[in-house]
């Protein structure tokens, strides 16, 4: 009989304690960020999809050594370049990132010895069309420069 009532009392007390916790939370300020209206700064090391790094004149640092293409586990990088006359290095013709299969592992960035690749801060990645994720990085670099 004593346990019966003590259980009721302690049970009720535990409920009151729970209510007090939520009440304290009720008067605490919001912690959420109202996303489309306010946006957070992405941290420095944020790994978005990759992008090319250009030099001062806006030309890509890439010398088409194909290391990134070889390092990629999912085969989502395809690039081509040709050696133009009079120049020592190859120049980049096209750099296509197939973001549909990319898993953002960063192997390409790590394998690059020429400081030609970096992560972008892009996180608004949603689209209804698959083609939007076949990204031409060279064009992107040009757009950034202009």
């Amino acid at each position: 009989m004593v346990t019966y009532f003590s259980e009721i009392i302690s049970g009720l007390w535990s409920l009151v304690l729970g209510l007090s916790v939520t009440f304290v939370e009720f008067i605490r300020p919001n912690v959420t960020v109202q996303y489309p209206y306010e946006k957070l700064e992405m941290p420095e090391r944020f790994r978005g999809h990759i992008q090319l790094i250009g030099d001062e004149e806006g030309r890509p640092n890439c010398i088409v050594c194909m290391m990134c293409q070889r390092a990629c586990p999912s085969g989502c990088i395809s690039l081509s370049g040709k050696k133009e006359e009079g120049q020592k290095k190859k120049t980049l013709n096209s750099y296509i990132l197939d973001f549909t299969t990319c898993s953002l592992c960063g192997s390409c960035v790590e394998s690059c010895n020429f400081n030609a690749l970096e992560y972008s801060k892009e996180y608004n990645l949603a689209s209804t069309r698959k083609e939007d994720f076949i990204i031409d990085l060279l064009k992107r670099l040009e757009e950034q420069n202009s």
Binding site: E7, G11, S14, L15, L17, G18, S20, V21, T22
Partner: peptide, 14 residues
Amino acid sequence: KKYHKLVTGNIIFR
């Protein structure tokens, strides 16, 4: 501590 107060001790939960 808050979780224990809110959840662990809760009679319904127990």
